[in-house]
């Protein structure tokens, strides 16, 4: 036995790119993270909707029929499922980021709310309504502004007036137009 020179040779295990498929917990996590891709696609869809609206009634009709395609309906249903999955997998994790000391010894909102999702939902809804209510009470005009893009769509669709449609390169004028509209 030679104890003068080290024969140490640690073995470093290779990292397999499919590691996340080997354990349910990791797979569920990757799915949760993966929902962001669908959310991104949905955001792009919303952007498309805006742009279509700005190009006028014609574009909007076209976009509506595009959305009506069975593939797109299926896609949107999938987005809904994904967002719900994301939301629900976050519920059990959420209390980890909040710590409330109750009566010195019972620690954590986690223990307190463990499994009581309905309570959490109601609390969230109540919080939303309260905050929203307060904001709108002081800035009632905000509601109109928030809804203004829908107003724009409505006016375009209703008027069928080509003059309300921007000419030429739509993309360039989008932001200006929206700003003008919201600002008026």
């Amino acid at each position: 036995m030679d104890l003068e020179k080290s024969t140490r040779q640690p073995y470093v295990r290779p990292v397999d790119s499919t590691w996340w498929t080997k354990k349910g917990f990791y797979t569920a996590y990757m799915l949760r993270e993966g929902t962001c891709l669908l959310v991104l696609a949905f955001v792009l869809e919303m952007l498309g909707f805006y742009i279509a609206a700005l190009t006028g009634a014609n574009g909007l009709w076209k976009f509506a029929s595009f959305l009506g395609h069975p593939v797109m309906i299926a896609f949107n249903a999938l987005v809904l499922v994904a967002v719900l999955y994301h939301a629900f997998t976050w519920f059990p994790l959420m209390p980890k980021a909040l710590r409330v000391i109750v009566k010195d010894t019972k620690s954590g909102l986690y223990k307190l709310l463990d499994g009581k999702y309905l309570v959490i939902l109601l609390f969230a809804a109540l919080l939303g309504v309260t905050v929203g209510g307060i904001v709108l009470f002081y800035y009632p005009e905000l509601l109109g502004r928030l809804l203004s893009p829908f107003g724009l769509v409505k006016s375009i669709v209703e008027s069928q007036d080509p003059s309300s449609m921007p000419n030429g390169d739509t993309m360039k004028d989008v932001s200006k137009l929206v700003q003008d509209y919201i600002g008026k």
Binding site: L3, E4, K5, S6, T7, R8
Partner: peptide
């Protein structure tokens, strides 16, 4: 001493 990890005295 024996350094157990490196296997040296």
């Amino acid at each position: 001493t024996l350094d157990m990890q490196n296997g040296v005295v």
